[in-house]
Write a protein that binds this DNA or RNA. Sequence first.
DNA 1: GATAATTTGGCAGGATATGCCACCCCTTGC
DNA 2: GCAAGGGGTGGCATATCCTGCCAAATTATC
Lengths: 155, 155
Amino acid sequence: MPEAIDAIDRRILRALQRNGRMSNVELANEVGLSPSPCLRRVRLLEESGVIDQYVAVLNGPRIGLGLTVFVRVWFKTQDAEITQQFAETVRKFPEVVECYLTTGECDAIMRVVTADLHAYWRFQADHLTRIPSVQSVKTDVPMETIKRSYELPLL
Amino acid sequence: MPEAIDAIDRRILRALQRNGRMSNVELANEVGLSPSPCLRRVRLLEESGVIDQYVAVLNGPRIGLGLTVFVRVWFKTQDAEITQQFAETVRKFPEVVECYLTTGECDAIMRVVTADLHAYWRFQADHLTRIPSVQSVKTDVPMETIKRSYELPLL
DNA sequence: GATAATTTGGCAGGATATGCCACCCCTTGC
DNA sequence: GCAAGGGGTGGCATATCCTGCCAAATTATC
């Protein structure tokens, strides 16, 4: 039921990943189609869930959110109930921009965005480590961005 | 030069983070402004760099890119030249969606997107560990997504 | 090679974006 | 307290764009 994605669809996706507010006529020119079928393809990609959403990407430092931290989390136990409770709590923290459960060395990974190290420290001390299921955490702090892309490696 | 961001700007940013393709009239209604001043504020936010770009967020699994892996990298040496070479190489890999230099336990963190574990393994064996500056890597594989947001914690 | 299904392109009506100008509000200076 | 100035807002006119419909073309199927 998910229609096959052909070369034109890939061109559309590539273009919209770079500029999600592109007008349909501009997009149609770029992919070599007239506006009508181009728009129809975009709508199909949206409705079929290939395109999840469109978002504006903000410049963190420009709005006082200069620090991103990657946090690895270890749980006290791995049973489902404790994990569920952790998930629900984490989802409510706006500072936690991403969070995944992992198997392997640690139990969860998350990305936290705050104003600065002090703000992060407060978040960790006041909220993160107070979640009952959390045993310990380790943080990795990016010092310099080498690459930050929102384009998936199509093809 | 960076104009202050007031409450209306924050409302605009919040809305555009959730739906970057919102029409200007819809956005104006949501923030309580008429279309004209609303559009001008959006343009200012774009030109001043508060809004970096607009992107379409794709559903990875739907296009055959079901695996995201977090990789921690250790360098052989930390001198600037080696690091620079690492950065330039990594920027060319489309699978590497994000990459940061860190200080602390490891030397770099990256997020890699591939079709599956096998594809990741090929990437690691054929490309990543062949970068001269790379001494070793450790991977954390998300098994379940608890949260994935594109909204920065404004305010 | 003919038919059917899918996709494309063009067109018309409606909605939206854009640029301009007058008005309002708030501040500044007297 | 009052007048002048500046920034922000709202409304309007034009141009552009989106949207749905139908015919034509392309592709697939038999």
